[in-house]
C-alpha cells in the first residue's frame, strides 16, 4: 500500500523559499522578529507549528534530527514531531544531543554544550516579549524600532517591589547585541546563559504568531537585570535523583500522596548518558545504601 506522498519535509517549495528568506533576514538582524506567512500544519497551534516549519525549511536528507519537549525525548510532542519528520522526510533521528545536526526544542536547551554545525530550533508560543505589557502590535513594533524598552524594566522592577527579587523564572527577556529585546521562548531562565556566545545557530519559529527570529553563533545575549539585582539562574539544593548530576535543570516529580517527591534531570538524554556512564543518584533504583529512607524503598 502506498501512503499519500508529500514533498520532502512536507512543505511545498515556494513555502520553503519564503521561510528561508525570513531565516536569512532573521540571522542578519539578530533578535528582530521577521514576519512570515505561517502555514497550517497537520498539528494544532501550540504543538510547535513554528518550529516544525523552520525545521522543514532547513532540513536535508543528511541531517540527523533530535526533538525535545521540556528536555525529554520521549514525551508526546517530541515523539510525534520526530515521527512526522521520519515519515515526510525519511531522515535519521536520534536522542543523543552530540549526534544531532538539528535539534528542535520546546522550552529547554540541552545540558550538553552545542557544537558548531548544530542548529537549535525553538518552538515559540508568544514571540513578542512586550506583548503582555502592550497588547497592540503597532505599538510594540514602534517600541522595538525606537529601542524603547523602559516598560520591560518597569515590569522587572515591579517584580522586585512585590517579591523582593525578580520573580520571572521562564521566558526571561534578553537583549541581543545591545539592540533588540527578545523572548527566549518559555525556557527556564536557567538556560539563558547557554544562549550567550553559543557555538550553534539558534532559530526561533512562532507558527500562530507568524514570526521567525534568530541568534547567530557567537552572539552577545544578555539577560535583563539591575545593578543591585543582578540576573541569577535557578539553583537546586540537591543533585538529580537518578544520575546525581549537579548544576543541571531538574524537574520535580511527585511520587505519592504523602508529600513524596524526587528531582530528576529535565534533559532525559543527559540523564541517561550519565547513568550509562555509571553515575547514580539516590533514587536510581539499585544498590540503595543505608542513607536511603524506608519510605523511598517502598516507593521504588
Amino acid at each position: 500500500m502506498t501512503a499519500a506522498t508529500y514533498n520532502f519535509a512536507y512543505l511545498d517549495e515556494q513555502t520553503k523559499r519564503m521561510i528561508r528568506r525570513a531565516i536569512l533576514k532573521g540571522i542578519a538582524i539578530p533578535g528582530y522578529q521577521v514576519p512570515f506567512a505561517s502555514r497550517e500544519m497537520p498539528m494544532p497551534y501550540g504543538w510547535g507549528t513554528g518550529g516544525v516549519q523552520v525545521t522543514a525549511a532547513i532540513l536535508g536528507p543528511d541531517d540527523v534530527l533530535k526533538v525535545i519537549d521540556q528536555g525529554a525525548d520521549d514525551t508526546t510532542n517530541a515523539v510525534s514531531i520526530r515521527k512526522f519528520f521520519q515519515r515526510v522526510a525519511g531522515i535519521e533521528t536520534t536522542t543523543n544531543t552530540a549526534d544531532a545536526t538539528i535539534i528542535q526544542t520546546r522550552h529547554r536547551i540541552p545540558e550538553t554544550p552545542l557544537q558548531e554545525g548544530q542548529v537549535l530550533v525553538y518552538q515559540v508560543p508568544i514571540p513578542e516579549p512586550l506583548r503582555f505589557l502592550e497588547p497592540r502590535e503597532t505599538e510594540t513594533r514602534k517600541m522595538h524600532a525606537l529601542e524603547e524598552y523602559g516598560l520591560m524594566h518597569v515590569k522587572l522592577y515591579e517584580d522586585i517591589a512585590r517579591n523582593g527579587h525578580i520573580a520571572t523564572t521562564y521566558a526571561y527577556p534578553v537583549k541581543v547585541e545591545g539592540r533588540y529585546v527578545m523572548d527566549p521562548s518559555p525556557t527556564p531562565k536557567f538556560d539563558n546563559p547557554k544562549m550567550h556566545m553559543s557555538e550553534a545557530l539558534q532559530l526561533f519559529g512562532a507558527g500562530r504568531e507568524k514570526r521567525i527570529y534568530a541568534l547567530p553563533p557567537h552572539t552577545d545575549v544578555v539577560s535583563l537585570d539591575f545593578e543591585d539585582h543582578p540576573f541569577e539562574v535557578q539553583r537546586f539544593d540537591r543533585p538529580c535523583a537518578l544520575c546525581g548530576a549537579e548544576q543541571v535543570y531538574l524537574d520535580e516529580v511527585v511520587l505519592d500522596d504523602r508529600g513524596g517527591r524526587m528531582f530528576v534531570c529535565s534533559d532525559s538524554d543527559h540523564c541517561e548518558t550519565r547513568q550509562a556512564e555509571g553515575f547514580r543518584g539516590e533514587l536510581a533504583g539499585e544498590k540503595l545504601d543505608a542513607s536511603t529512607s524506608d519510605r523511598t524503598e517502598e516507593v521504588i
Partner: peptide, 14 residues
Amino acid sequence: AQATFRAVMDAMAR
C-alpha cells in the same frame, strides 16, 4: 535548493 540554502544560511550565520 536545500543544499544551496544550507550553504547560504551557514555563511550568513558566520
